[in-house]
Computed example of a mutant assay.
Amino acid sequence: MKKYQTNILIGITFFSMILLGILESIRGVLIPSIQNFYHIDYKEIGIFLFVASLGYVIANFFGGNTADSLGQKRLLLLGVLLITLGTLGMVVSRSYIFFIVSVAILNYGFGSISIGANTLTPVVFKNNQGMMMNLLHFFYGLGATIGPRYAGVALDYKWSWQEIYSATLIIIVIYTIFVLTSTFPRIEGVRSEARVPLMEVLRNKKVLLFSFVLGFYVAAELGVANWLTTYLQSSKNIGSLKSATYLSLFFGVFTFGRLIGGFIVEKLGYFRSIIGFLIIALLLFIIGTTASKQLVILISLSGFFFSIIYPTTFALLLKEFDKGTSTVIGVVITISSATNMIGNAVIGQINDMFGVNAGFRLVALFLLITVALILILKKDTTFENQI
């Protein structure tokens, strides 16, 4: 590819991550408003989050083949179409069932954009993949920092959750214009790569380890994103604007971590960075949830140490599998998304049975499991010397 074509693809992948960051992060701030609107309990909110993850999982399951048959441009356009339909369905719905169906459509759109962007990364990021993957996910963090703050301020100005979601259609239109007016070259290298049978990928121990490492990590990250504001309001008696600010701070330091995290990863090594950051994130989270109200800010500050885990693990995945990459990515994202889906559904169930204080602390358990799995993975990869 020519350099300008590569730059276009890089720009689209970055914009994709900003879009996903904004749209996915406002959900956690709006959960109490949605709960009050439909008069539902935490168990039903857990179903809402389960269905959201299910739509994302299904999109990723079919995403690899869809990318091959439609091409990345059409896949991204399909994603924005579904996001638009899902958003419109949510804001006009007066029935919780119709709302849930719209959520599934919305998140299928998220998954389509995610798989479209991820299948571009092996092409556009040839060198320093750890650094570049962290930079890519920096843009997700940037969007995720903007999203909660926007939603919190809008709530403070007495906007309804429907109005907050409706306003996001503006950025969706801008993104659609960007994709439509861009030229996507044929990615021959990706399309002609040696294919690996699906069952062979599923039987690969390392594929499963990567899947569950990412799955439990994302369950922890989204556990914070989805439930932090609810936890602060119900357990710590913190108001909606301030609790949204804590979530925005979490994503703010998370974003900063991804901006500089790539340099740390290249300096310290992939495994050393992942394990060290996970342990510090776990300690800060435990202190923030068990100590006095004044120390809840440590939960937000733990976002810095959450920051590098996903992109650095994904960079390891790309290094470990140089054949059948699209199939491996599809399988890993599908299994990890399913793990996350179940994890957050369990949080919702525990919240309903024992209170938000108990359910939210499952995030610490998910982080601990991630540490254990990454230590096992380290023994089975070709990058043992990086710790």
Rank of each mutant, 00 (worst) to 15 (best):
S337G: 00
S166N: 02
T290Q: 06
N7E: 12
V101N: 06
L85G: 08
L88I: 15
V173R: 15
L155V: 13
L70Q: 09
L30E: 10
A219P: 03
L82F: 10
N226D: 02
F271Y: 09
V213G: 10
T325F: 12
V51E: 01
G269L: 10
R258A: 14
I287N: 15
G116M: 08
I31S: 08
V101P: 01
P311F: 04
I308W: 11
L295K: 12
L155K: 14
I238T: 12
N340H: 09
I31R: 07
D68P: 03
I238V: 12
K158W: 08
F37S: 15
V124I: 14
Q349Y: 11
F210M: 05
V224H: 09
S160N: 04
G109K: 02
M133N: 01
K3R: 13
F50G: 01
L222D: 03
I83W: 05
T6D: 15
T334E: 13
T84H: 03
T230W: 04
L367E: 00
L180Q: 13
R361D: 08
T230R: 00
I58W: 11
S302A: 01
V80G: 05
T168C: 03
R361Q: 06
G152K: 05
F184Q: 03
G109A: 11
G343C: 05
S16W: 10
I335Y: 14
M132D: 14
T181C: 01
M132A: 13
S292R: 07
L49R: 10
A104Y: 11
D156N: 06
G89D: 07
D41I: 14
I309V: 15
L373V: 00
L85E: 11
L362N: 15
I335C: 00
V123N: 13
Y56D: 09
R149M: 12
S33Y: 02
G215D: 03
Y231W: 00
T255D: 04
I342R: 04
G28C: 04
I342K: 09
L120M: 12
Y310G: 09
Y108T: 08
S25C: 10
L77Y: 04
L278C: 14
L77F: 04
S182P: 10
V356I: 02
F98R: 00
T119V: 07
G55T: 04
V92F: 09
F37R: 05
F48H: 04
M17A: 02
I299M: 07
S182T: 05
I299C: 05
A67D: 11
N7C: 12
D156V: 10
F37Q: 02
E221N: 00
K205G: 03
H39C: 01
G239Y: 04
F304H: 08
